[in-house]
Design a protein around this nucleic acid. Structure first.
Lengths: 136, 136
DNA sequence: AAAAAATGTTTGCGCATGCATGTAATATTT
DNA sequence: AAATATTACATGCATGCGCAAACATTTTTT
């Protein structure tokens, strides 16, 4: 077995997991929301009209249809008030639009700042360069 | 928000997830075992006596004590025969050693080859260099 | 126009996880 | 030596996940 290659993979996994868990923890503590919740809202915030069809979110967020459906439900029922809203999509009543509500917009901006700080403080300039190179 | 930094992070996550899911899928198909199962057995195979204390495996595999305990149970009850065995640790009867059985050793060798091929075929030389740089 | 196939979402189910707790064994204090 | 605290693992429980099936709404076929 080519141990070099496998070791490199193992290290990448550990590196990524460590960063991810720390970030998830931070978000959980400060907002009672996880990374997946963040991703969903992030893509909505990026979108033109602050809404996207559920099925378009699937490949973005990286969850199954069912998981995403329930994720939306959780965000609708967020303790402090809905962050997101289901809207029926007029052109095709099978679809739904997931709409980012005002409260959600506010949250996502705060979360972005927290995440940015989090990354800034944990990644060296060298790391950042390497990450960029890796995925370009 | 520093979008460059965040984008780099997002891409790293997607890159890693894609590789990880594909690998998990391969192992699931060929061995009806997942990545975590592989990691556990891999560390046992690396160890001097093909056994490690449960608590020493926790930081290696990256799961909680409880999850690891159940993972061992699953490997003990593997359909085709136990891959792993619980052994009481004489010096401290609270501890257990997780021991890699012959069948498990056989499996782990095959899995290593599959994973190595998997990585070889999916990572370019450039990727490999970058990964190594990232985690050194 | 009715029947069949396809599409988008939700729901039922089983599984793996982490947290909190339980239990047994060992270490420390008094 | 008895009482207390700590350690190592197992277990009950709630949660989030993916798969498969159900459901509702188009679209295509006949």
């Amino acid at each position: 077995m080519n141990n070099e290659l496998f070791s490199a993979w193992l290290n990448l996994t550990k590196y990524h997991d460590r960063l991810l868990k720390a970030m998830d923890c931070t978000l959980q503590e400060q907002f009672q929301l996880g990374i997946k919740e963040f991703y969903l809202m992030y893509y909505l915030a990026q979108s033109e009209q602050k809404k996207m069809k559920l099925s378009d979110l699937v490949p973005k967020v990286g969850l199954s249809h069912s998981a995403l459906s329930r994720l939306v439900t959780r965000l609708e029922q967020y303790r402090g008030g809905s962050l997101v809203e289901r809207q029926t999509y007029a052109n095709d009543k099978r679809s739904i639009d997931v709409f980012l509500m005002k409260k959600g917009e506010h949250y996502i901006h705060e979360m972005e700042m927290v995440i940015n700080d989090h990354l800034q403080s944990r990644l060296s300039e060298k790391d950042i360069q390497n990450i960029k190179r890796l995925v370009e």
